[in-house]
Amino acid sequence: MNPSILVVDDEPDTCANLRDILTEYGYRVDTAQEGERALELARAHCYDLALLDVKMPGMDGVELLRRLRATNTHTVGVMLTAYANPETTSSAKAAGAWNIHAKPVDINVLLADLHLALESAV
């Protein structure tokens, strides 16, 4: 079974594009635009990986990751952010993130990293 990824970003176009690309590369993808909806999806299905935007109105990505991993401990978390700074990186890592990627994302680097993240989780 191909790995499943939950993509969460408040910008619908970002979700759509990540879905298009990741699907092409063989992943099964679900998307959400905010935290509560993401948690709802995660309750129904244990995702292999969560690809989360850091800055969102309401619940931010780091808080969401914390809550996702509280119930789905095997879900690997990868963060995306337009605000790359040391504080964001350390709080993401503290919440259990595998890595954090700066926007605009280098897709090749991201794809390689997702692959690595999923291998390591097995």
Binding site: N17, I21, A82, A102, P104, I107
Partner: peptide
């Protein structure tokens, strides 16, 4: 400036990912 960087990087991200899709698929 920080807010602006954020607000510009999001559209750029969408553009980049769309271009990637069109180039690679």
């Amino acid at each position: 400036a920080a807010g602006i960087a954020h607000e510009l990087r999001n559209p750029l991200n969408v553009i980049r990912t769309s271009v990637f899709y069109l180039q690679n698929v």
